[in-house]
Design a protein around this nucleic acid. Sequence first.
DNA 1: CTGAGACATAGATGAACTTCGATGTATGAG
DNA 2: CTCATACATCGAAGTTCATCTATGTCTCAG
Lengths: 119, 119
Amino acid sequence: MSKSLLELTPVEAVACCSPVTREPLTAEAAERIAPLVKAIADPVRLRLLSLVASHADGEACVCDLGDAFDLSQPTISHHLKLLHEAGLLDRDKRGVWVYYRVNTAALGDLATLLGGVTA
Amino acid sequence: MSKSLLELTPVEAVACCSPVTREPLTAEAAERIAPLVKAIADPVRLRLLSLVASHADGEACVCDLGDAFDLSQPTISHHLKLLHEAGLLDRDKRGVWVYYRVNTAALGDLATLLGGVTA
DNA sequence: CTGAGACATAGATGAACTTCGATGTATGAG
DNA sequence: CTCATACATCGAAGTTCATCTATGTCTCAG
């Protein structure tokens, strides 16, 4: 979190904003938030996120994830990259393996933003 | 809510499922949920949702919404249709005007699903 | 009935996205 | 050093998506 305000990640940008239902989103805010939502707007990425989150120790290596899908390894790698770039998954390379972990704060921010009702 | 289990709307399907972070989503669940997320994975639709939600009386007619965007009327109509089909906006035609209202339960379900952390 | 206004639908176009096979990179074993 | 393994990157192919213009439908006023 050593970034200036001008280089906020999507996740950080979301965290600062009011829930969608309270006041109109500015065009700029919507442009920052949409990519984050888009990152989870895919069945494969939803399952990847879910698999990582519910995995033992809260992390999973790519080798564990690929088996659940009928997709090629590069495709899984691609989806993991998108989730990582959105700030929803953290990467940790240990030896030959790469472990992914859910950024729970990011998911929470997103949920809060959408659920102005329940917040 | 007079539908059988086999003709659930996306919104109803979401409402029945566990948060993403608790247990792995099945492929089928992910396929049902993703379209709902995709419906709000666009800056224009995020703003539309936000505009309707924060409008006086909780509803807004199309004529109120179009002015906020630099887009053609059919494009706005298209986005409203997607949000309506996803179950996030309710329609009500009164005379010549069509009023949209946010389905807060649907938004809440979505937020709950994503925010397994905060739920 | 006729015309105008509000909104939806239809078809077309260009951009973005998902997926793949092929290839590249890095780590560790022998 | 050499090779196998784990994962990422790189185009390419097919599909989906956002947007537009043109047109259709519905409602009300006159």
